[in-house]
Design a protein around this nucleic acid. Structure first.
Lengths: 246, 246
DNA sequence: TGAGAATGTTTGAAAATCGTAAAAAGATTG
DNA sequence: CAATCTTTTTACGATTTTCAAACATTCTCA
């Protein structure tokens, strides 16, 4: 998609940094006290959490919950962290933060051999762990954007620059408007239901009503009129972008 | 594709990016274990690989194989990475990613002195290396990000000297300010999310909050005003550098 | 044609984001 | 190790955007 820093709609968030709506974090750790502590801190930051208390259980949980990040203790019953990490790495790219004891060979963990993304030495400061979680999650986001301007009749949409031109003239759009238009322009003629648009533009966890889409469509229509392209209502279904035929 | 939130969750089935048929990558590294590992990962991504186990051998291999990118260890027998890099740079533009030890002077490596395109600190995560390879290759086409002074209206940014001039007048910038401006100037008009800027300027493992970016942007704005170029806020997304239009 | 449902449009309060100053924390230097 | 400089955090007001609600309009189908 195209929005580098989606705003997080409809959610009670204070000073929190924004992460993809409901980022799921799985904690694999046998000591309940630690699980509880970490859970508490992550909750407070708006993350969704799950826990597994052993290696095997952990592997199952990963499959089931599809977390966005795993916090993995090195010392575990059944299957130790090394093995769990290795198996996870074999068929996923889910970021992993290891909990290690002081003195563990950190280089091996984060480096080649295991391929974890980061580690925190026990005993650790929960706040630091949270910071690391955020940092690791952020890493994926820095990739260059697919450049290239989409053109359709008198309409140009530049995703990388977030600029829209109507017959060559720059038209300032707001975040939602831009994202909405961009989705439509990417597949001209394709009908999008309001729900599809909500998922695409507002995020899958958006809690508002579907009429919101209508409002934004109306505003978009205002701003991009007379460019040889228009947003058509598909009655009872949704909207699509069409090239004027005359 | 760079949307952190929504389109990202499918981590499992990662689609291979398309690079020119059979992009060749040469690894110059004396430790066979590392060569093997890296080779495996690059293979998996569809790259063609070759290896050289020493500095001299590496130079020869470059001549012979004409790779599209070189991964170069800093510590090598015969001829060390510094020297190899220097010689490569003397008569080619082949992108180079350096493998360094933690603590090596990264500024010198990627800066003008050596002119490598990127670096990865050992011990490294192979997946990250692959990501960097892709990033560098992608960057390669398009823009001569090479040395020299970047000029944009009344603004000059000299990466080598780390100097900035506003309408010819030198303006002293602090480290962060300079790096920030530099990344923005390299791709004027391109929108950078705060996360992207944090990754680029502060590093992949920066642990602070995103508002830090705002503060530095504010300070930059102070220092580079009235030079025909300004930093624009892209509401809900991030910042971009724009040439004044009036 | 008219009732009911879906959509269009306008609006202002509420929410989100941003700018900035100033305090706090961290680095660097002499 | 104190002084100084840089960076980061924090706090709060200012600004911008969003969205639900209300009402108007259009559409469908009996």
């Amino acid at each position: 998609m195209f929005n580098p820093a989606k705003s997080e709609p409809k959610r009670r968030v204070e000073q929190h940094e924004k992460f993809p709506a409901m980022t799921k974090i799985l904690i694999i750790e046998d000591e309940p006290a630690i699980v509880e502590l970490v859970t508490m801190y992550l909750d407070k930051e708006g993350f969704e959490t799950a826990a597994a208390y052993g290696g095997l259980e952990g592997l199952v949980a990963v499959k089931r919950d599809q977390p966005d990040l795993v916090i993995l203790d090195l010392m575990l019953p059944e299957l130790d962290g090394w093995e769990v990490c290795r198996r996870l790495r074999k068929d996923t790219d889910i970021p992993i933060i290891m909990l290690t004891a002081r003195g563990d060979d950190v280089d091996k963990i984060v480096g080649l051999e295991l391929g974890a993304d980061d580690y925190v030495a026990k005993p650790f400061n929960p706040r630091e762990l949270v910071a690391r979680v955020k940092a690791v999650l952020r890493r994926g986001k820095g990739r260059p954007q697919a450049s290239g301007t989409l053109r359709l009749a008198g309409l140009e949409v530049d995703a990388a620059r977030r600029e829209v031109r109507v017959r060559g003239e720059r038209v300032p759009l707001r975040t939602r408007e831009f994202d909405l238009l961009h989705t439509l322009v990417m597949q001209p003629g394709m009908v999008f239901s309001r729900d599809q648009l909500l998922n695409q533009v507002w995020g899958y966890d958006y809690l508002g009503g579907t009429r919101t889409v209508d409002v934004h469509v109306a505003q978009l229509r205002q701003k991009i009129k007379d460019c040889g392209v228009h947003i058509e209502t598909v009655w009872g279904v949704g909207y699509k972008l069409c090239v004027d035929d005359d």
